Simulated assay, not measured.
Amino acid sequence: MSSTGRAAEVRLSIPADGAYIAVPRAVVGNLAARNDFTVDAIDDLRIAVDEACALLLPEAADGVLDCVFEIEPPQLTVRASALVRSGWMPDTDSFGWTVLTALVESAAAETNDGRLTITVTATATATETL
């Protein structure tokens, strides 16, 4: 949520290079912490975003990975996308996809005009179980 109490959106473009994958992970961690996600939920979301980006990195045809972080409390949605070769979709039976889907409420992959977008959504909970 922005300081005005309304929904907010953050956009990020990084080179499709493993050296930059920590950037979207750090951004989602900061946004989740500012929006009342528990420590465990923040860690899960960081790992899920890391996996989504890692799936896209080797397939990014133009060398760019885009991330859009949509904050609409209590939900945080992340859309990681890249231009990919025609017909490529992530293997939903892979270990990376299994990890990704286990850590968030929902995960989906879709293509539109050669751009593959992996969307993950998580919701903040009021308390953390210790």
Rank of each mutant, 00 (worst) to 15 (best):
residue 49 V to M: 12
residue 14 I to E: 10
residue 87 G to A: 06
residue 115 R to G: 01
residue 127 T to M: 04
residue 126 A to G: 06
residue 120 V to R: 08
residue 22 A to L: 05
residue 94 S to H: 04
residue 5 G to P: 12
residue 53 C to L: 08
residue 38 T to S: 15
residue 77 T to F: 01
residue 42 I to S: 11
residue 111 T to M: 05
residue 9 E to I: 13
residue 101 T to R: 14
residue 25 R to S: 13
residue 80 A to W: 01
residue 124 A to S: 12
residue 112 N to P: 00
residue 26 A to F: 00
residue 124 A to I: 01
residue 2 S to Q: 10
residue 68 V to E: 14
residue 35 N to M: 02
residue 58 P to A: 08
residue 120 V to N: 06
residue 130 L to P: 14
residue 76 L to Y: 07
residue 96 G to L: 06
residue 93 D to Y: 09
residue 78 V to Q: 08
residue 7 A to Q: 12
residue 56 L to C: 09
residue 103 L to Y: 02
residue 124 A to Q: 06
residue 121 T to I: 11
residue 21 I to L: 15
residue 11 R to H: 10
residue 1 M to H: 14
residue 6 R to W: 02
residue 45 L to F: 15
residue 63 G to H: 07
residue 96 G to H: 10
residue 124 A to K: 06
residue 14 I to K: 10
residue 79 R to W: 00
residue 107 A to V: 00
residue 105 E to S: 13
residue 11 R to C: 01
residue 121 T to R: 14
residue 37 F to L: 02
residue 90 P to V: 03
residue 86 S to R: 13
residue 8 A to N: 15
residue 1 M to D: 13
residue 130 L to K: 10
residue 77 T to L: 03
residue 115 R to Q: 14
residue 35 N to A: 05
residue 123 T to W: 04
residue 52 A to K: 05
residue 102 A to P: 00
residue 58 P to C: 09
residue 110 E to V: 11
residue 46 R to Y: 01
residue 111 T to P: 02
residue 51 E to V: 07
residue 79 R to E: 10
residue 74 P to Q: 06
residue 67 C to I: 06
residue 68 V to M: 10
residue 112 N to C: 04
residue 34 R to Y: 05
residue 130 L to Y: 08
residue 44 D to Y: 06
residue 18 G to V: 00
residue 125 T to N: 05
residue 70 E to T: 15
residue 106 S to L: 00
residue 34 R to G: 14
residue 105 E to I: 09
residue 6 R to E: 15
residue 120 V to F: 01
residue 9 E to T: 15
residue 49 V to Y: 08
residue 55 L to N: 03
residue 69 F to G: 12
residue 111 T to S: 14
residue 25 R to Q: 15
residue 41 A to R: 09
residue 64 V to N: 03
residue 123 T to G: 08
residue 41 A to W: 01
residue 116 L to T: 11
residue 126 A to W: 06
residue 93 D to A: 15
residue 10 V to S: 03
residue 61 A to Y: 04
residue 20 Y to V: 04
residue 118 I to E: 10
residue 34 R to A: 13
residue 105 E to V: 13
residue 98 T to H: 05
residue 8 A to R: 11
residue 97 W to G: 11
residue 45 L to V: 02
residue 106 S to P: 03
residue 30 N to E: 08
residue 101 T to W: 00
residue 40 D to C: 01
residue 45 L to C: 04
residue 60 A to P: 09
residue 52 A to E: 07
residue 85 R to D: 15
residue 60 A to V: 02
residue 86 S to I: 06
residue 87 G to D: 10
residue 4 T to F: 14
residue 22 A to G: 15
residue 1 M to F: 10
residue 29 G to A: 15
residue 6 R to M: 08
residue 35 N to T: 07
residue 18 G to Q: 11
residue 42 I to D: 06
